[in-house]
């Protein structure tokens, strides 16, 4: 664990710009994520929420701007330092990203075996404890292919917390889950956060679930932060963006139509082609 915990801010993002080819994903994004509690980053699909997590994890390099995690500029670290930083980050991918050729047990044991010199019985004990925390101790000997999507995510959670990280990033943890496993995941994220007392970053577009657990919310759209605040503040926010997103209105600042010339023009053109 780090010692320079003078500030309450763990992750600072300043003026971040990132583009894929011609398409600008972030354009002057600025946000601060506190050291404790659950911070949710919400926004419509395609706003690059996953990309943001990869930028924080140092897997992508921004075009401009600064990302600091625990006082370290992520993109100026040597690969050794970056790996050292990543050991203190846990990340939960949308698919779980379990290693398909290893059992559930071995998947959770993987970071321990890679980064520690713990004895076999010690690892065994730790892994079972982590699996117990997500309620899947009984599934230890299953292969990832035998798990449901929600179970795979819970195993990935156990793996993400294996090294007792200072922060856990969740990439769309609720997407495509049935109500039961959604509820399980919501409860788990909240419980893990309070039990481990870490920084949790949840990227999601599932409004009610996220609002129920987040301590602070950033709403991003078009590469910028369009609104931020606590869940209560967000619910009352007058911002058109927030209203559209939280109340799931089909049209608003995010238009229903993909940019196109007026309909009549298109129809007319089709006629001209005949």
């Amino acid at each position: 664990m780090s010692n320079n915990s003078g500030s309450d801010i763990l992750v600072t993002i300043t003026d971040l710009s990132f583009s894929r080819g011609e398409h600008k994903i972030f354009d002057g994004l600025t946000m601060e994520i506190p050291r404790k509690g659950i911070t949710a980053i919400m926004g419509p699909s395609g706003t690059g929420k996953t990309t943001l997590l990869k930028l924080i994890g140092g897997q992508l390099t921004p075009d401009a701007g600064l990302i600091e995690v625990d006082g370290l500029n992520v993109h100026q670290l040597s690969s050794v330092e970056l790996f050292k930083l990543r050991k203190r980050m846990g990340m939960l991918f949308q698919s779980g990203a379990l290693l398909t050729d290893l059992t559930v047990f071995e998947n959770v044991a993987y970071p321990l075996r890679e980064h520690t010199r713990l004895s076999q019985p010690m690892i065994h004990e730790l892994v079972l404890m982590k699996l117990n925390a997500v309620g899947l101790r009984g599934a230890a000997q299953l292969m990832p292919a035998e798990l449901s999507g929600g179970m795979a995510r819970r195993v990935a959670m156990a793996r993400a917390i294996a090294l007792d990280p200072m922060m856990i990033m969740y990439d769309e943890p609720f997407t495509g889950q049935d109500p039961i496993s959604m509820g399980v995941l919501v409860r788990l994220i909240g419980e893990l956060n309070s039990a481990l007392d870490v920084c949790s970053i949840v990227v999601s577009h599932d409004v009610p679930e996220t609002l129920s657990i987040a301590d602070y919310i950033y709403l991003i759209s078009d590469g910028k932060v369009v609104d931020k605040g606590t869940p209560e503040a967000m619910s009352k926010s007058q911002s058109a963006w927030t209203r559209q997103f939280i109340e799931a209105l089909p049209d608003g600042p995010v238009p229903f139509h993909y940019p196109a010339p007026p309909l009549m023009d298109d129809l007319y053109q089709m006629k001209g082609l005949e």
């Binding site: 990543r86 980050m89 991918f93 990203a97 290693l99 993987y110 793996r159």
Partner: peptide
């Protein structure tokens, strides 16, 4: 399936 990405994030090359 993001397994390579996942390894990188686990600080495994």
């Amino acid at each position: 399936t993001e397994q390579l990405s996942g390894m990188e994030m686990m600080a495994v090359n």
